[in-house]
Write a protein that binds this DNA or RNA. Structure first.
Lengths: 118, 118
DNA sequence: TTCACCAGGTAACCAATGGTAACCGCAGAG
DNA sequence: CTCTGCGGTTACCATTGGTTACCTGGTGAA
């Protein structure tokens, strides 16, 4: 359907997953949630998310800020410091997300087993 | 990293989201969960997931079966009928997923508002 | 006979995602 | 005077994900 597609206004879940399901978002949210209600600086986030590049961290945070899940605070210090923290909305998302995380930690081994099995 | 990349063995959440976060998986799981513990046939799924193509439903179901979240049963009838249902693992995933769905239904409007705002 | 249905498979294409590398200005350390 | 760290941005590429379109092969309906 290349056309207008008025469908799929439905399922907000998919739209949510489109936002938080991208490669690095869940890890960023996790790190920010662990630090909540404190803030984390850009470079700290980078260190705590192994393998992420500056660009990807940047765009990931931008989208989270854009969606109102993360707040960005610029400290006008000498080399400018930028602090990130979860908003209230972000913190509320943390609840179901933590449940999903627990499930993942408990059951991903079974998925791996099934995937490897055949 | 086109190379081996030994990093990111961590965060099972991201690996989970890599699997269930793709465009159609969440909707397929939802439909199967609504029908659980009953089964749903291919064409029924196709009708209940507006906009999905045959191919995408096919590959989506394949990956779910591959990951052990969905079971596939072939009924050797005249034009062969294929039935899908959530496995126990899939059903257990439904719990945190339902929580995420509830969050999405309750709060996506706020995200939309924030996104539209700027 | 021709059509549509069933459950897919295949091929080709296109857009979006993700990744690498380089660059920016500014500061303090050496 | 050069190097590093800070918080990005930009340009460029490769890979992936998703899409349309067409194929199969057997069946019952028109």
């Amino acid at each position: 359907m290349t056309r207008g597609d008025l469908f799929s206004p439905a399922c907000p879940t998919r739209r949510l997953l489109d936002r938080i399901g991208s490669k690095w978002t869940s890890m960023a949210v996790k790190v920010l949630a662990e630090a909540a209600p404190g803030e984390v600086r850009f470079a700290d986030l980078r260190r705590r998310i192994p393998g992420i590049s500056q660009k990807m961290l940047s765009v990931t945070l931008q989208s989270l800020v854009h969606d109102g899940l993360v707040a960005r605070r610029v400290e006008p210090a000498v080399p400018v410091r930028v602090h990130y923290r979860l908003t209230e909305l972000g913190l509320s998302l943390e609840v179901p997300l933590a449940a999903l995380r627990e499930w993942a930690e408990a059951h991903m081994a079974e998925i791996d087993e099934a995937s490897a099995g055949r």
